[in-house]
């Protein structure tokens, strides 16, 4: 993979208006940046790079569906990026009802990235999972949790959408089980999380990493309690945060909320990715950072309220999460990216 120098990174950012560094300096969230900066490692050996995040495509079986168009547009955008992103992370909910045809359609579309020299990693969302409890997804994409190292950063992906059995006692068919959890406000599904097996795995995975290792973790749902009613949470997030608390700084990226949202907990910064399918409204709770919010959406425009993200990581492990949209969705002060 091509190494991107700080100068290159500067050039890329500059083409969006202002250079990355001056964007930080001008940012209204200066306090936040300073804290991240203070916590970022001096000793790490990161070669700056960027990766793209796409997710919540919610593909339906029928051909030429509007959600095919929006996912395709995101993938086309990524393929056209110069310099190319080092990889793409697909952050869950590729299918809408976990059907084989939906997942196959999604895989065909994502494989275009590979064909264009961009590898992708993927984690599941609840919409991919509950028709056959992940069987097809695993056959197609392999293990639903993993880690890898890239240019000095340790990347972790986890399957955060595991609920307790709500179907057996109710005698539900696989289809009924899927339909129930396909509703965001499912009131029989309960809270989801990663579960014991993955917690043990995570503990082992990071055991020998020194505290100054830059960590990026991907989960479908947020690793903080946002709005449990819509599963805008991960049940065992406190345990995950505890395991990761030894690190100087952790960047956590999640999907599922289909909206612009940001939070900080301890040593972690959290950011929500947009869907390519449709936006969710903000839930009836206070946002922890109300200034990091998307604008009003025109419901008549299938390209409004949706998008994907480009993430820059610099050599001090400062991130810049740039929401990429096709309509006026991002407030001007966030257009240059949200500092992570």
């Amino acid at each position: 993979m091509k190494k991107i120098s700080r100068r290159d990174l500067f050039k890329v950012s500059a083409s969006f208006g202002v250079g990355a560094v001056s964007a930080f300096a001008l940012s209204p969230f200066l306090g936040l940046v300073e804290i991240s900066e203070a916590k970022s490692s001096k000793r790490s050996k990161i070669s700056p790079f960027n990766f793209a995040v796409i997710g919540d495509a919610h593909l339906y079986e029928m051909p030429n569906h509007r959600f095919d168009e929006t996912l395709k547009r995101a993938i086309d955008d990524v393929i056209r990026m110069r310099p190319k992103p080092d990889f793409v992370l697909f952050i869950g909910d590729l299918a809408n009802f976990g059907k084989k045809v939906e997942l196959e359609k999604g895989k065909r579309m994502l494989d275009r990235l590979k064909d264009n020299g961009i590898p992708y990693f993927i984690i599941p969302g609840e919409h991919d999972w509950y028709l056959d409890l992940g069987q097809t997804w695993k056959e197609m994409f392999g293990k639903p949790y993993w880690s890898f190292d890239h240019k000095g950063v340790h990347f972790i992906g986890m399957n955060s959408i595991l609920v307790e059995d709500y179907w057996t006692a109710r005698n539900m068919s696989p289809w009924e089980r899927m339909l129930a959890i396909a509703e965001l406000e499912c009131h029989i599904c309960g809270l989801w999380g990663v579960g014991e097996e993955q917690l043990e795995w995570l503990e082992k995975d990071v055991k020998n990493l020194p505290p100054d290792t830059p960590i990026v973790i991907f989960t479908h749902s947020p690793l903080w309690d946002y709005y449990p009613r819509w599963n805008f949470q991960t049940k065992d997030a406190p345990e995950i945060r505890k395991i990761l608390s030894k690190f100087e700084k952790v960047i956590a990226i999640h999907g599922h909320v289909h909206q612009v949202v940001y939070n900080k907990t301890g040593n972690m910064v959290h950011i929500g990715n947009l869907a390519t399918a449709w936006p969710w409204p903000y839930p009836p709770v206070e946002l922890p950072y109300p200034e990091i919010k998307m604008l009003r959406v025109d419901p008549g425009d299938i390209y409004d309220g949706v998008g994907w993200a480009n993430t820059y990581i610099d050599e001090t492990f400062l991130g810049l999460f740039e929401y990429k949209t096709w309509a006026e969705l991002i407030p001007p002060e966030l257009k240059k990216g949200v500092p992570l």
Partner: peptide, 27 residues
Amino acid sequence: TNGLTCANCHPDAAFTNPDTFPKFQPN
């Protein structure tokens, strides 16, 4: 006809804003 439901965009009827009608609706 495209598989979508009202709840796709309006979980718990969020963002339907019945309290604001009637109103000028740009769309």
